[in-house]
Amino acid sequence: MGMRVGYARVSSSGQKLDLQMDRLSDCDRIYHEKASAASAKGRPELQKALDFVRDEDVFVVTKLDRLARSVVDLAGIVQKLEIKKVDLVVLDQGIDTTTMYGRLQFNILAAIGEFERELIKERSMEGRIKAIARGVKFGAKPKLTKQEIADLIRDFEEPGCSKTEISEHYGISRSSVYRLYAENRS
């Protein structure tokens, strides 16, 4: 049997960890922090805990909202736990993936999360298509004007003109010099 690893978090410095720490007292190791980050990336102690757990450990939190700030964030954390073969226990919601019923309950939550991610992706794509139809340009704005590109092509074709000097003059990389020349020569 592995270790029970707890994680506690409060959002602001005015809040106290005491209640969560008491509830996690049966854990072999507890990670805790004061962080209100929207994703796991902004919570270093959570990252340390997720890196620490291993096969047959049980990861314990008091509430899901202490672990994840969104369904997408939760799905990423759960995926890490599944890859490492670590079970999850959420005390207040009664989720316990060490049991058959807990796994069922959690898989239902995960399926809902996956459905929500697909909806978000679909809506984003629809919005992107509509924006393109309205003429919105995506991606980085071109660094050079049409006149500067014409001048670059002229410089490129000038015998003895260094491509490095051209790139430095226009403030772009050498590979961009070659790409712009290939795309715009006529």
Rank of each mutant, 00 (worst) to 15 (best):
P44G: 04
R54A: 11
D18C: 04
R43H: 05
K16A: 14
Q15I: 08
Y101C: 13
F59H: 01
R134H: 12
L17F: 08
I108W: 01
H32F: 15
E122M: 02
K63F: 08
K48P: 00
D18R: 03
F115V: 01
T98Q: 14
G127D: 09
E118H: 00
L24S: 07
V78S: 04
S70E: 06
C27Y: 10
Q15F: 03
L74A: 13
G14W: 06
R66C: 06
K41Q: 15
L109R: 11
I132K: 15
D26P: 02
L104N: 09
S124N: 12
R66T: 06
A111C: 10
M100N: 12
S39M: 10
D18P: 01
D96F: 01
V71F: 12
R9S: 02
A110D: 08
Y101F: 15
E126L: 11
L19M: 14
H32D: 12
V86A: 02
Q79G: 13
Q105R: 15
K121C: 05
R66M: 12
I83H: 12
L109P: 05
V72F: 15
L17H: 11
E116W: 05
D18V: 07
V86I: 01
T98F: 11
V78G: 00
I30F: 06
D96Y: 05
R54S: 13
V60F: 12
L19F: 11
L17D: 01
R128G: 01
F115L: 10
K41F: 13
R43S: 07
G14Y: 14
A49R: 04
I129P: 01
A75Q: 10
Q105W: 10
V60C: 13
L46P: 06
V86S: 00
D51K: 02
K84T: 03
L74R: 09
V53F: 08
V136C: 06
E82M: 09
E122L: 06
D26G: 09
C27A: 09
I77Y: 03
R9Y: 04
D65P: 03
E82Y: 10
Q47W: 02
G14F: 14
L67F: 01
R117I: 10
R29P: 00
G102K: 02
A75R: 11
E45W: 00
F106Y: 09
